[in-house]
Design a binder for these strands. Structure first.
Lengths: 237, 237
DNA sequence: CATTTGTTCAACCGATCTCTTGAATGGTGC
DNA sequence: GCACCATTCAAGAGATCGGTTGAACAAATG
C-alpha cells in the first residue's frame, strides 16, 4: 500500500549519516577485492616495496601500485619513500583486527570457506592448531621448536621469539636444523596461510611431531605477544 | 635489478588461497555500499520486514530486497518468513563486531570522519560519552535515567535495562516523564547515531544534565551486557 | 647534467554494480 | 480453492571498477 505521507522524517542531519556511511563504505570497498586483501596480508608481515609486493602477489607493478593507492586512500596503508623505493606498510594494527573480523564472519557464515579449507588445507594437516597463548608458555619453558616458514624477507621484519626460519621450499633440505626431541610448531602469514599447514604435514610424515600455530605473525603481534625483529641495515625506526 | 627467474614459485595451492580471498572479498563487497551499511545498522537493532527496512532507509522495496539478498549471500544476514512478511535479521553478533572494526578503522584513519563528526554531531553535544560498563554500574545503583530515543519498534526488540523510550521527536513534549534529580544518559543505534547526540544536546539546553552512551544498543549487547526485551505478540523465539 | 631505476599517471575497454520498472512468485488468510 | 499481498525476479540504462599499455615523473647514481 502506497503511504501517501511525506518522506519518513528526513532527519535533521541524515546528511551526516549518509556522509559517514559513505566513509565506512569506502573502507569496505578497499577490502572488497581479493588482490587487495592479498596485498594487505603481505603488508601485515611488514613493510615492503611496491615491486616486491607486485612480485609476491603476481601482479604487474602498475596494477599493484593502483591497488595500493586505493588502500592508502581508504586509510588502510601508509607509505614512505626510502631511497629509490616507496615502502608501504599497514596503517595500524586495527587493520589486522578488521581483517580478522572479516575472516571470522566469512568462516562462520559462508559454507564455501569450510569447503575450501577441507579440500585444500585439511588435506595437508588435520591437527588442531596451537593457541598463541599456549605456545608462548611453551616457548618460555623451552619445550618447543618454533618454525617460521615464511620467506626470509618477512622473517626479518619480525618473527616469534626464538623462531627458526626455514622457508617451506627448503624444509626437506634443512630438516637437520630441527631438534628432534621437541614438538615443532610452524606458522606463517595467517590462519589460512597454506605454508604452515603444508610444513606441519610434511614434518609429521617424517615422524617429527608438528602442529600449526593458530593464526600467523600478524595475529600474534595483534594479541600483544612479543615479537623479535632483526636489526635492519637501513632501518630507521 | 631485473630478476629473470621464472614465476615466483606458483605455490602448490595458491588456488586455495585465491578461493579463500574471494570469499573474504565477498563479505567485504557486501559491506561496500552505504545503503547496505545502513540496512545492517537497522538490522542490528532487531529483526525487521523488508518493507519496514525499505521505508526506514528511504529505498524502494525492490531495491531494499536486492541489497538484503546480497547481504544474505555474504552471510551477514538471515531471513525467515513470518505470516505474510519476510523478516530479516543479522546472522550473528560477529557482524556487529565486524561493523565496529570497520568504523574504528575509518574513524582513526580517515580525516573526513572527524570532519563530519565535528561539523554535524559535535554541534549538538560536545560532552564525552559514557562508557557502557560505567553506565551499567550506575544503572544498578539507580543513579541514572536511561533514555532510549529510537522508534518504539526498535525499543521493543531490545533495550537497556530500565530504559525509558521517548523517540526524539516526542522529547520536548514528554520531558515530564524524566526524573529531574538524576543525570540522563541517552542512546540510540550506534556510536554515530545522531538521535542520542541531539537528545543529549536538547536536554542540556533545558538544564537537564544529560550525556550520550558510548555506542548504541548493538554494541551494548555485543559487550555481553544485559538487554531487556518486550514480550512480542507474535514472536516465537 | 644525463642516465637509470622505481613508481605513478592517464587513457582505454570490458566487466561488474546500482537502481528503476514492470511482471512473476509464493504464502496466507478468507 | 481464490484473491491478495509482500517479496522476489528479470531486463535494461548509467555509472563505477579492474587491468593493460605506454608515457611521465622523481630520486639516486655516475
Amino acid at each position: 500500500m502506497v503511504q501517501e505521507n511525506k518522506a519518513p522524517a528526513p532527519e535533521p542531519s541524515s546528511q551526516a549519516k549518509r556522509a559517514l556511511l559513505e566513509q565506512f563504505a569506502r573502507v569496505a570497498k578497499a577490502l572488497a577485492h581479493p588482490n587487495r586483501l592479498e596485498l594487505l596480508e603481505f603488508l601485515a608481515q611488514g613493510e615492503r616495496t611496491v615491486e616486491s609486493l607486485a612480485r609476491a602477489a603476481g601482479l604487474s607493478v602498475a596494477n599493484a601500485s593502483q591497488h595500493l593507492q586505493q588502500l592508502k586512500q581508504a586509510g588502510l596503508v601508509a607509505s614512505r619513500r626510502a631511497g629509490q623505493h616507496v615502502r608501504y606498510r599497514l596503517a595500524d594494527d586495527d587493520v589486522v583486527a578488521l581483517m580478522a573480523a572479516l575472516r571470522e564472519v566469512a568462516r562462520r557464515h559462508l559454507a564455501e570457506v569450510d569447503r575450501i579449507v577441507e579440500a585444500y588445507l585439511a588435506a595437508r594437516d588435520t591437527l588442531e592448531p596451537v593457541p598463541a597463548t599456549d605456545l608462548l608458555e611453551r616457548i618460555r619453558r623451552g619445550e618447543v621448536t618454533v618454525l617460521d616458514v615464511r620467506p626470509p624477507e618477512e622473517y626479518a621484519a619480525g618473527h616469534l621469539p626464538g623462531a627458526v626460519n626455514i622457508p617451506l621450499e627448503e624444509l626437506e633440505r634443512r630438516l637437520g636444523e630441527l631438534p628432534r626431541d621437541r614438538e615443532v610448531v610452524a606458522y606463517c602469514r595467517g590462519p589460512y596461510c597454506v605454508l604452515a599447514w603444508e610444513a606441519a604435514g610434511r614434518l609429521r610424515e617424517r615422524g617429527i611431531p608438528a602442529r600449526r600455530l593458530e593464526g600467523g605473525l600478524p595475529e600474534w603481534r595483534l594479541a600483544g605477544l612479543p615479537v623479535e625483529v632483526e636489526k635492519e641495515g637501513a632501518g630507521q625506526g
